[in-house]
Structures are given as C-alpha cells and as structure tokens.
Amino acid sequence: MGERIRERLTSADFAATSRTFNLLGFSACVRSEAALVADLVELLWAPLLRDVEPEHVFTVTQSPPDLNGIVEWHLHLDALHVVSAPALSIVVSHLLWEANRQALENTPGYALLHSAAVTSGEDAGIIVGPQGSGKSTLAIALVARYGLGYLTDEAVAISPNGLPDGLMVQPYAKYISVGANIGEILPEVSPISDPALVSLLGELVLVPASSLRAGSVSGAARPSVVVLPTYIPNAPTKIEVLSPAAAMHSVGQHSYHLARDTALVMDTLAAVTSSARCIALTSGDLDEACQVVLDLLSHESSGRAS
C-alpha cells in the first residue's frame, strides 16, 4: 500500500476504527461506517489485539441508496475491492474470511497446518483432521471442560526446527466457528449472543477465544502429541499408534502451502512426527476422547520431568 493511499485511508472520518489485530504474520485494523463492526472484530480477535500501527487497513463503507432505494456495503483491503453486498452480514463474513486468508498467505517461514492445538504446560497437542472429524469440538472440550490451554482452532503455525525458538507451535487464538447445536454438546461454551452483534454474523455461530475459559489462551509450545481424530457416533474409543512416516503422510494432507514451501513443510513435519507421539483416535464419546489426549500429554510431561 502506497503512503498516500494509507494517508487517505487513515485520515478519513469513519464511525469507528478497531485496534490493530495481529493474525500470525498479518496485522490490520478495520475502519467502518458501521460502528458495530469494529466492536465485533475486537471481541472476536481480543487475544490478538495490539497497540501498534497496522500494516493493512480494511474499510467497510456504504453506498447511498440507488434508484430503487437499495444500499450497498463494500469491503476493501488497502483500498483494493474485496466484496460488495446489500447485507452488512455478508460483508462481515467476507471480512473474517479474508483476514484469516491473509494470515495464512502472509506468514512465511512457518509450516502451516489446518488444525487445532491445545497446551498442557510446555507441551502442545496438535489435533489434525478434515472438516467433520471432530477436531474443533475435541479442542474446545479440552480447553473449556478440562482446563487445557488454547492455541488455535484454525491454523497451527510451526516454526522450523534448528532455530533458537524452532519447532514451536505459535498461538493463533482467533474465534472458533461452531455448529448451531454446540450448546447441546458443550454447554460450557458461550457463542456470541448479543442480538446486535448476532445480526452482523448471519448464519455464523462464533465463540471468541477469550470466552472459552478465563486465562485459557496460551503462549507458544512444543508439539509433543499429534492426534488425528475421527468422530463416529456410538463408536468405541480406539487408538492406533502411527509411525512417523504414516503420521507425516496424514498430517501433511492438511498443510496449507505444501506445493509452495515443500522443503520447509516436509522438514518441519518430519521433525514433529519424529519427536512427537502420533496417534489416530476413533471415538463416539467426547469425554473418552478428551481423556486419551489428556493422558498422552500427561505422559509426555511426566516423561520429560523424569
């Protein structure tokens, strides 16, 4: 973004401007003609807010009514057009999606996995699986019900091995997107319920990370356990220990930039799966599944202590 365009974006009057949010390697603020949008993003990205100048600026603006009386909302990133829609909720959903996409595209030097991660002390448990495998529900339960720390529900960013702070899972504590029936599965979890904010979310049901449990957001941790869950209703809980190669093959399917950063991703995942305990977990019972992960993390922790 050129300096003059930045000046135009930052000096113009908007109803509200959010604080800067740092999403991995992407930092931005939101300037909006609808004040609630700034409130919403500050709530959703609360653990990631920083008092620094943003590198990027999202703007949410509104056109005056056309001849038919229809207004249109617009989303721009650094003055480039992202989307226009008659409903503000559509623009907001694009804003959340685009910010996450930018985070994943603008975090070089890390192996990025589409997965969740929780912590127990210095140890991180990476929970990897396709949509519907139960990884988010498992991660939320481990944090909200069993007191583990929360790192991410979206993208595990692992710094490469060999660096002073290498082979560590970085925190990316963005909000969690859940199903509408989350209250039946995990009554401890509180999605956003303020009617004004809910109206901005359309169909989305979102849980701010900071509302999972007080003090649950944790710092970077070493990947000690890798779990590949599969939720099957009423299935007995079973675990299968995976070889490093088999684990890497499965985990690598969920990496974001395998083709672009092949060597970085492969070398980092090889280091993770060679040093961590890797299992495939099949279960139809959330608490039993949680107990497996807790035992694994506890075993790693006590092994290091001894």
Partner: peptide, 21 residues
C-alpha cells in the same frame, strides 16, 4: 519430488500430493 526418509519408510511430496512408501 521432495523425499523424507524415516526408519525404512518414506514420504514423497510432489506439488500438493503426498505419497507414503
């Protein structure tokens, strides 16, 4: 192709595809 060797097994990466050997 990027190859990663473990104890006996290997994982190969080509583009977005992974192969377990």
């Amino acid at each position: 192709v990027h190859s990663q060797f473990f104890d006996g097994e290997a994982v190969l990466a080509l583009g977005e595809e992974l192969h377990l050997l």
